[in-house]
Design a binder for these strands. Structure first.
Length: 886
DNA sequence: ACCGCCGGGTGCC
DNA sequence: ACCGCCGGGTGCC
């Protein structure tokens, strides 16, 4: 294989310049920041957009109208076929013009002008969504009837009815779309009862997800259970479920089935959802969604696909070893691809390059996996399209076998209209890794991805549905499934029927998903055996007793903090002092680890006092650092999710930036803090300091003489014992406090341990190095990794470790579990033992209790709806009480 | 006849 | 369009 970035083809540990100076967040705009974190859903423009809030739409009623001017257009329509109404304000004859298009987007005619005059205002002001169906008469040469349904928000109904009335129209009561056919046939069959307008069933996200998973529970002996061995070029043996996935993916790339909901009927291809028909055979998706749970090896399977179904349904050919002549040598080492091209290009014409788009956090994982899984006798050109010096030459890119890039680069390039090399190439295959990244249809990344040109299209994601069916549209659209690429048809035929609980809606969704998706969860079974047989995982709790001296410090800080917090309770100002309370708890947690951790924490500023703006700013930044670094996984009280792009208000409450901006926008001019009702102003909001700087203020004390602590002693005792029993055993030492990790470095050095470190402040390149060193099985490679709890994304693979020492408990048990999964995952050969150090009679023990409650809550009925903001507040207050023994 | 009626020309917005 | 509408041709019974 040859790596085109860096330029030489050999590859060493440190040669991926995949980080460059790109991640310079110091002057980030919010959108840069959020997209770089894959949080584009939270961008302000999205939340404030008046775009359809289609979930709350109700059916106002229906109206019969006519479509005229059929003579002049090529679009044809069948009886009962859906049509789209589209405003055409630029029409020179009538500024109210409304076009009528068929499902294919071809114009059929216009709405008659008198009616158009009534509809124009409604459509322009987005008061209602107007959908048409041509009930009959589709063969008419000049005009045809159209049955229109008006959908909108309850509060707009009056305005719409008024507007229609002014033009002499009146809506008929709702008539369910699915009743159309029968209605026209049996028009005299007695009174018609209006169908219920509102959904009978509304699915919660959890129900939806579980419905989704049920789809794949009982895979019969169909194409999804055949197995296919990887081609010779795949260096790794595939597990049974991976061979199944490979077989399925290859068959999807090579088959020529009709896409879902299409039938062949007397020389026509007929869409059963829209009743649209055409002569031309609709193209099937050459690809689909691989939605296996995290950890089942989607990356490996995809690499196997690329190598096994390389071109024209054939695997990657063996590399002919080039006859070594001086001439060739020169060419090879001059960094051009010409010689390789001669040797390895294939008879097939057309595109041969695969584009892989992934979040930055997993880019290095792809690089590793290619390195690991491509057989050394085979040659693959891989180009990492990243960094400011990336090649701008489309023909260079199309000559590669594989081009790897990130969603950000994709979106950035696409933003520079007309100058995106990625968009000038016709790809053989496009793979979107962590495909749910493009969930938001309005995000730049989504638009950029949807506009890529490629034949075979794949989406890899562990969570195809995050919250609602809406999440699926971008993915389906990316797959170029007719007619869903247009959001209107997706919405009318799938999304609304499902969310409104219309009969058959869920069924449609299921058959759609079933036909293009493969999903196995960690619990899925193949021939009675679980897909993943992971070694055992044990969690031990080791209690620590503080020394007399440590206990004294702890008790005095606790006494002081408890007094302050009691005062907040009696004054009823708990929420106003939330950051201060977290500060107290943080200090106690730090004291459980090492007395030196909390020396520097800013002396609490309980008194507001009169301060200069600079001092206020600094105080707020400090408070926010407290909230964030306390590892409490704060939720934003607006969206009830984890904080994304945190900002702090003047009243010291932390929210997601987009959320609080939305509050300010909607409540203007007198917005109030959602938590304490203080005055809220956009210009007073203070942004989050950069990740990695949070703890840096505590750094730089290493010159002091180092002293140990009870916890460190316990750790070292365990490490030394472990080394004695098995000198090659590797372990992770995990803490939320990077300063604590720094302190631990001292005894590790003293006792002669080889160790590495991975924390959030490290550059991408350093991280890759640290991970590779640690994962190496070479003699002398590090046996200990100091790991900060939150470092690294989900892709992080630390399977070399079979022991984990969790130095301090986290608020959120899920964060701990995620951390354990980094070594307890596919590839782990040993049983994993996790040791949690918990100081007796301390805040840590109380945290365990709270964790237990949270676990029970999470395991319990999902059906319970989202708690309200006030319920969350109450829970938090109770937690605080429990934590400090009040 | 400043009407009615006839029949040809014509046709979206 | 096997319509509606327009506007020119025409005109007792």
């Amino acid at each position: 294989m040859s790596w085109k970035k860096p330029k030489d083809s050999a590859r060493g540990c440190s040669q991926y310049n995949i980080c460059r100076g790109e991640r310079n967040y110091s002057r980030f705009s919010s959108s840069d920041f959020s997209t770089s974190l894959g949080l584009e859903d939270f961008s302000v423009s999205d939340t404030s957009g008046t775009e359809e809030d289609t979930d709350s739409a109700v059916l106002y009623g229906t109206l019969r109208g006519s479509v005229v001017g059929l003579r002049y257009y090529t679009g044809i329509v069948n009886n009962n076929e859906m049509v789209a109404l589209q405003r055409e304000p630029s029409n020179p004859y009538d500024k109210n013009a409304v076009k009528v298009n068929n499902v294919n987007g071809d114009q059929v005619g216009h709405i008659k002008k008198e009616l158009a005059a009534a509809l124009a205002g409604i459509m322009d002001n987005k008061l209602a969504l107007i959908e048409g169906v041509v009930p009959y008469g589709a063969k008419n040469a000049f005009t045809m009837p159209v049955q229109m349904s008006f959908w909108g928000r309850e509060e707009n109904k009056e305005a719409v009815l008024d507007q229609l009335k002014r033009h002499g129209f009146k809506l008929a009561p709702p008539l369910k779309e699915c009743d159309f056919a029968s209605k026209w046939i049996s028009a005299r069959a007695g009174p018609s009862y209006s169908a219920p307008v509102h959904a009978a069933v509304q699915l919660t996200p959890e129900q939806l997800k579980s419905e989704f998973d049920k789809l794949f529970e009982d895979l019969k002996e169909d194409d999804k259970t055949c197995e296919l061995e990887g081609a010779e070029a795949v260096a790794t043996l595939l597990l049974p479920h991976q061979k199944q996935a490979l077989a399925w993916m290859v068959s999807r790339e090579n088959s020529n089935d009709l896409p879902p909901f299409w039938e062949e009927r007397s020389n026509f291809y007929y869409n059963t959802l829209t009743n649209f028909a055409e002569k031309q055979r609709p193209k099937n998706v050459i690809g689909g969604i691989l939605a296996d749970d995290m950890g089942l090896g989607k990356t490996l399977t995809t690499i196997a696909l690329i190598l096994t179904n390389f071109q024209d349904g054939k695997p990657l050919p063996v590399q002919k070893i080039p006859t070594v002549t001086p001439l060739r040598m020169t060419s090879v080492f001059s960094g051009t691809t010409s010689i390789q091209s001669v040797e390895t290009k294939y008879s097939g014409d057309g595109p041969s390059a695969t584009l892989i788009v992934c979040p930055l956090s997993v880019l290095s994982n792809w690089i590793d996996q290619f390195e690991q899984h491509i057989h050394q006798n085979f040659h693959v050109n891989i180009y990492v399209y990243y960094g400011s010096d990336r090649s701008r030459d489309p023909s260079f890119l199309s000559e590669q076998d594989i081009v790897l890039t990130t969603y950000n680069i994709l979106a950035t390039d696409y933003g520079m209209r007309g100058d995106s090399p990625l968009h000038k190439v016709t790809w053989l295959r496009i793979v979107l890794d962590e495909g749910h990244t493009i969930r938001n249809p309005n995000a730049q990344q989504t638009k950029a991805a949807l506009n890529l040109d490629g034949h075979r299209r794949w989406v890899l994601t562990g969570t195809p549905i995050q919250n609602s069916v809406k999440d699926l549209w971008s993915l389906i659209s990316f797959l170029k499934l007719k007619p869903f690429t247009d959001r209107e048809w997706w919405h009318r035929t799938i999304q609304r029927p499902v969310t409104m609980g219309a009969p058959g809606g869920l069924g449609r969704l299921q058959s759609l998903i079933r036909s293009i998706t493969l999903r196995r969860t960690k619990k899925s079974k193949i021939k009675g055996k679980p897909v993943l047989e992971l070694p055992e995982r044990k969690v031990l709790i080791q209690h620590i007793t503080l020394t007399e001296e440590e206990r004294q410090i702890y008790q005095s800080v606790k006494k002081e903090g408890k007094a302050a917090i009691s005062r907040f309770f009696s004054e009823g100002t708990v929420l106003a002092h939330y950051a201060d309370i977290l500060g107290v708890l943080l200090r106690l947690r730090q004291l459980c680890c090492h007395p030196r951790l909390c020396i520097n924490t800013s002396s609490s500023s309980f008194s507001a006092g009169d301060k200069t703006p600079e001092e206020v700013h600094e105080m707020l930044v400090n408070k926010m650092k407290l909230v964030l670094s306390s590892g409490s996984d704060e939720e934003c009280a607006v969206c009830l999710e984890s904080l994304t792009v945190p900002v702090i208000t003047r009243c010291a409450h932390v929210f997601c930036r987009p959320c609080i901006f939305e509050v300010i926008r909607s409540e203007q001019p007198n917005a109030k803090c959602p938590l304490c009702r203080s005055e809220l102003r956009a210009e007073h909001l203070v942004e989050c300091p950069l990740e990695g700087e949070i703890d840096s203020s505590n750094e730089k004390k290493s010159d002091q003489e180092w002293i140990s602590s009870s916890k460190i002693n316990a750790l070292m005792h365990a490490l030394i014992e472990l080394r004695r029993d098995d000198p090659t055993a590797k372990c992770l030492v995990v803490s939320q406090f990077t300063t604590f990790l720094s302190l631990i470095e001292n005894p590790l050095k003293e006792s002669g341990f080889a160790f590495t470190r991975l924390d959030g402040s490290m550059a991408q390149k350093k991280r890759v190095e640290a991970i590779q060193c640690f994962q190496s099985s070479q003699a002398g490679s590090p046996t200990v990794m100091l790991l900060s709890l939150k470092a690294g994304g989900v892709g992080l693979n630390l399977t070399a470790a079979s022991r984990v020492f969790l130095m301090d408990p986290a608020w959120n048990p899920a964060a701990e579990d995620q951390c354990f999964d980094r070594c307890h995952r596919l590839g782990q050969k040993h049983s994993v033992v996790i040791t949690k150090f918990i100081v007796k009679d301390s805040v840590e023990e109380n945290m365990l209790k709270i964790q237990k409650k949270k676990r029970e809550l999470a395991a319990g009925a999902f059906a319970t709806k989202k708690p309200s903001a006030s319920e969350i507040k109450q829970t938090k207050i109770n937690e605080i009480k429990a934590l400090i023994d009040l």
